[in-house]
Amino acid sequence: MLELDKILVRQGAFSLAADCKIEAAKRLVITGPSGAGKSTLLSVIAGFFAPSKGRILWQEREITQATPSERPVAMLFQDGNLFPHLTVWQNAALGLRPSLKLNQDEKARVKAALERVELAEFAQRKPGDLSGGQQSRVALARVLLQDKPLILLDEPFAALGPALRQQMLALVDEIAAERGAGVLMVSHDPQDAKSFADQVILVADGQVHAPRETAEIFANPPAALVAYLGES
């Protein structure tokens, strides 16, 4: 259980309040108008932004002051998920050890992770030699090796075509299922929510709404979601 306890984020005129609980090992989509603070919410959970007020708890342990790498999360950003000067193998292996000093057992795990995303033969290439979809799979191999209970996705597949995007989401789904991890994904596409998510978190008007079951929220949408989706 991830708990956002009376969180308040302030950045100039922008403010965002969150006070809710997010169940572990679920697939959640965070949606809402642009500029509402979807990405900010992920940044706060991941530890890149400290909230002005409030606490964050994971399994009832406070993590508000923990650094990003100490938190139970693995995050993928919109872009820049790989170091361009390191090989595919090194990029993936960073998920295990930031020093890249691996023992035999760990090397075998990196190999297995690259095989899992079907990139074993690209291990010694640099990200620049790879297609967009392949780069995304390298990042997912690293997420697999990080083995954190919560995977945060800040629209990392936005630049991919629709078919490739669906493949990536399916791969995320499989990896999360294998590791028993939860997924928190930012998306402005209601279709993502309907096809992927167990629950939906609406971020609108400076407020993070508590998660609701996907089918239920679309059957009976709150006013802010109606305004965002448009009447149709």
């Binding site: 790498s69 090194q90 960073l94 890249l100």
Partner: peptide
């Protein structure tokens, strides 16, 4: 941010 998220610190951050 990517480096922070992976815990790249100190010498490892410099080297890698």
């Amino acid at each position: 941010k990517l480096a922070d998220g992976l815990g790249l610190q100190g010498l490892a951050r410099f080297r890698l």
